[in-house]
């Protein structure tokens, strides 16, 4: 029953490689150049709805989550702005999506001018997938960031 580490390494490397493809090309193409990015669920549609079809660019937005979740049912997640935003721009909302869950929606945070654009919560992830965050800025522009979280099949009723 106890799997040797070699086999697990192979699995981890495999998952990492797949993730790299998705993040490296999929998102960039999907958000950057308007080409359809095939999320397995409604994530792509939810992003479009949120941005009104506008382009979301990479920027100081950051998604923080463990690389490997201890259990997919409770995964700590933070979204934040790392570094400075251009003067006069602030984050109004951050939409968080999970592209491998039955449905993409996770949370939508709303920040007033009296809040720091940063929030943490705990989320459910059905399998290894990307967490996608899109921030709506006060000037109508959008930022995006993503992070892959590996969700493994537990040995003990996991």
């Amino acid at each position: 029953m106890v799997v040797t580490r070699n086999r697990r390494q192979l699995l981890a490397i495999g998952a990492g490689a797949v993730g790299a493809v998705v993040i490296g090309t999929g998102l960039e193409v999907g958000f950057g150049r308007g080409v359809a990015w095939a999320a397995p669920n409604d994530t792509t549609d939810l992003v479009k709805k949120f941005t009104g079809g506008k382009e979301a660019t990479a920027g100081p937005l950051k998604v923080v989550a463990p690389e490997i979740a201890e259990n997919g049912n409770t995964v700590p997640l933070s979204v934040m702005i790392e570094g400075d935003l251009p003067a006069g721009r602030r984050v109004e909302e951050i939409l968080v999506l999970a592209d491998g869950n039955p449905r993409g929606g996770v949370a939508r945070f709303t920040f007033s001018a009296e809040a720091v654009p940063e929030a943490s919560t705990r989320i459910r992830l059905a399998e290894t997938q990307n967490i996608v965050a899109v921030a709506k800025m006060s000037d109508g522009s959008f930022l995006t960031a993503s992070r892959q979280v590996k969700v493994t099949i537990g040995g003990c009723g996991g």
């Binding site: 949370a107 939508r108 709303t110 459910r124």
Partner: peptide
Amino acid sequence: CDLEPAIS
């Protein structure tokens, strides 16, 4: 925050 069922 608007929550979806994906919140623990």
